[in-house]
């Protein structure tokens, strides 16, 4: 692997080297493009259906004559979605809860990852085992015991109650992933920074943290998707209607008289936008982040 060790940037499959096996290459390129197009259609079709359902008249969504393209477009569904009470407060709750739990989770998992990557201490293995064992617990099964625990702690109907739950549920994965990045950073860098007069913390902030950025991005997108799309815990822990998160608010479109699917689809489209934007933003970092983290265990 040390053969001419190219920097990783240059080994991207750019396809700029058609110098050898030209025929086979172009032919296989066509095959792969075809695979790509098919996969794109399969993956994107439900997404397309979500958006198109949000835009078509409500009674066409479950029409007996399904058409791939709506007969007419309407924004009524979006109007009803936005008019549903507590939309504003739900955005606020979601932002507070997800923002805090993701940031907090990143902070805790980074320092924990730093500890297990850089120090040999008694209990290190046990700690890593705990991190993994926690992921085995079936989430629905723990619902009532966790509720009671939160009740004891006084976290019911409080943002922090939900924040703690979300934070904890993404901690193991985040710690594991970030640890992979920390071990990738040569400690010499850190040491030279310390020689230059930085404290350990200073070295951490100035030298290590920037190098962790992809790992943090990767871990944060996981935590964000977890938290943003979670419904049951938030519904059970939060009680005031104006504290509900967006995914709980989404359930308002279902009443005993059925579901307003048009508004539901419109609302889900709106809710998905911030995640997709964030995702697009960090996606490049994340791809490399995931790999480095995972490879290093």
């Amino acid at each position: 692997m040390s053969v001419t060790a190219p920097s990783r940037g240059t080994v991207r499959p750019s396809g700029k080297s058609p110098a050898y096996r030209p025929d086979r290459k172009t032919r296989s390129r066509h095959v792969h493009n075809l695979v790509g197009v098919v996969a794109f259609v399969v993956m994107a079709f439900p997404v397309y259906w979500l958006v198109i359902s949000a835009l078509r008249p409500n009674n066409e969504i479950r029409s007996y004559d399904q058409t791939l393209w709506p007969s007419s477009f309407t924004l009524d569904n979006f109007q009803r979605a936005v008019d549903m009470p507590n939309f504003g407060s739900a955005i606020q709750s979601s932002l507070i809860i997800c923002g805090t739990s993701v940031l907090g989770g990143m902070l805790l998992s980074t320092i924990a990852a730093f500890a297990i990557a850089r120090f040999q201490f008694i209990g290190r293995k046990a700690f890593m085992m705990i991190l993994l064992a926690v992921q085995l617990l079936p989430p629905t099964a723990m619902l009532i015991p966790i509720y009671i625990q939160l009740n004891e702690l006084g976290g019911l109907n409080q943002y922090w109650g939900v924040i703690v739950l979300y934070l904890v549920s993404s901690l193991p994965f985040a710690t594991w992933m970030i640890r992979g990045f920390v071990v990738n950073i040569p400690k010499e860098l850190e040491e030279s920074a310390m020689v230059d007069g930085c404290s350990r913390m200073g070295a951490f902030w100035r030298v290590i943290l920037p190098l962790l950025a992809p790992g943090l991005a990767a871990a944060s997108i996981f935590s964000l998707i977890n938290a943003w799309n979670e419904y049951l815990l938030a519904y059970i822990v939060l009680q005031d209607n104006d504290k509900y998160t967006l995914n709980v608010w989404l359930m308002n479109f279902t009443t005993s008289r059925g579901t307003d699917y048009g508004a539901l689809m419109a609302a889900s489209t709106l809710i998905a936008i911030p995640v997709v934007v964030f995702f697009m933003f960090v996606q490049k970092n994340m791809a490399s982040g995931l790999t480095s983290g995972a490879v290093k265990g």
């Binding site: 994107a44 995914n247 998905a272």
Partner: peptide, 11 residues
């Protein structure tokens, strides 16, 4: 497409 699919709520 992969990203958008990943971000869709389960419900």
């Amino acid at each position: 497409a992969l990203v958008a699919a990943w971000a869709m709520p389960l419900l």
